[in-house]
């Protein structure tokens, strides 16, 4: 779940962290928090592995940075002309040159190997128990439930997920509405990260997302799932996630898709499995969702003009 119920506390914490070393990894937060400085650990085993890889790479770079810049600054301090340092004339050292060609190679192999293994894992969608089709439009997401527990899902109305109206009102030029005033029930400040109808999936279930688009290229991404693929018109990509804790997970379209690219967030509501089953049953017992709301947000049949 999000952990910014007390936003100001976050700020103080964060500001403190900000003063400290810029590389401290803050406790994994489910959704972006003020002063956040690092990746989330996320909500799946994959995201945690990615986080480890990310930190490993980060520390390698820090170490190399300290090494290289350190050496340079020692030189800058010790070998100044003003301190009467006299220049040596050598300009070769085969041993060293070979050394700093080999060592980086080894370091890189050390990073690339786990990365390769992890990539293969991320590409392995076998054994997924649920399939959801995700379609990007200018500017909303459409979700169709395809199958669950090996059975095709019928009668579940398509979900059209577009920016929630309060955010939409606030984001208008000169609306005068303070983005901070938009708060989710759980207290999270979800300006531009809230939608009319989120995607709902069960926790602890390997869900496969089939991702495509209908007009231009979009990008479907929930950072805490590391489920991220370009949504390309005419092409079907896929990604998967097995989310272990229930909660509301927020992401955004990450491929420039026109004027409202910043206004088509991805919100996924992860329910405990039993609650999800109940929700699904409810959906299937027809017209629970008022038709009005649906039609209100039917996707534009033809892409709207790029400039509006």
């Amino acid at each position: 779940m999000t952990m910014s119920s007390s936003n100001c506390k976050q700020r103080i914490l964060g500001a403190g962290a900000a003063l400290g070393a810029s590389l401290v990894s803050m406790a994994a937060a489910a959704n972006p928090v003020p002063w956040q400085m690092n990746l989330d650990k996320g909500a799946t085993t994959i995201t945690r592995q990615i986080w480890d890889l990310h930190m490993a790479a980060l520390w390698v770079c820090v170490a190399l940075g300290i090494l290289v810049f350190g050496a340079m600054f020692i030189a800058i301090i010790r070998f100044r002309k003003s301190k009467g340092s006299v220049a040596a004339t050598w300009s070769h050292n085969t041993v060293m040159e070979v050394g700093w060609t080999i060592v980086p190679v080894l370091i890189l192999v050390g990073l690339a190997t786990p990365a390769t293994i992890l990539t293969r894992e991320m590409y392995n969608a076998t054994g997924s128990e649920m399939t959801v089709k995700v379609t990007g439009y200018q500017w909303l997401w459409r979700y169709d439930y395809i199958s669950y527990d090996g059975k095709p899902i019928t009668k579940v109305p398509t979900i059209y997920s577009r920016l929630a109206w309060d955010s939409n009102a606030a984001r208008q030029l000169g609306s005068g509405i303070d983005p901070n005033s938009i708060v989710a029930p759980d207290g999270y400040h979800d300006y531009l990260l809230n939608v009319t109808h989120p995607l709902v999936i069960p926790a602890g279930v390997k869900v496969r997302f089939l991702i495509t688009a209908d007009d231009v290229i979009h990008g479907w991404w929930v950072p805490d799932f590391a489920a991220k693929r370009d949504a390309i018109p005419g092409i079907m990509n896929d990604a998967w996630a097995k989310v272990d804790k229930p909660g509301i997970y927020r992401g955004q379209c990450y491929v420039l898709c026109g004027q409202d690219h910043s206004a088509m967030p991805v919100v996924v509501k992860v329910l405990p499995k039993d609650q999800f089953n109940a929700w699904l049953a409810e959906q299937q017992s027809a017209n629970t969702l008022d038709k009005a709301a649906r039609t209100a947000q039917a996707p534009p049949s033809t892409p709207p003009p790029a400039k509006g």
Partner: peptide
């Protein structure tokens, strides 16, 4: 080939769109 259903990507692309 993808559009025609070859490979993992093809199976999806062809099966769901074409």
């Amino acid at each position: 080939p993808w559009l025609g259903g070859a490979g993992d990507k093809g199976i999806l692309t062809n099966g769901f769109i074409w």
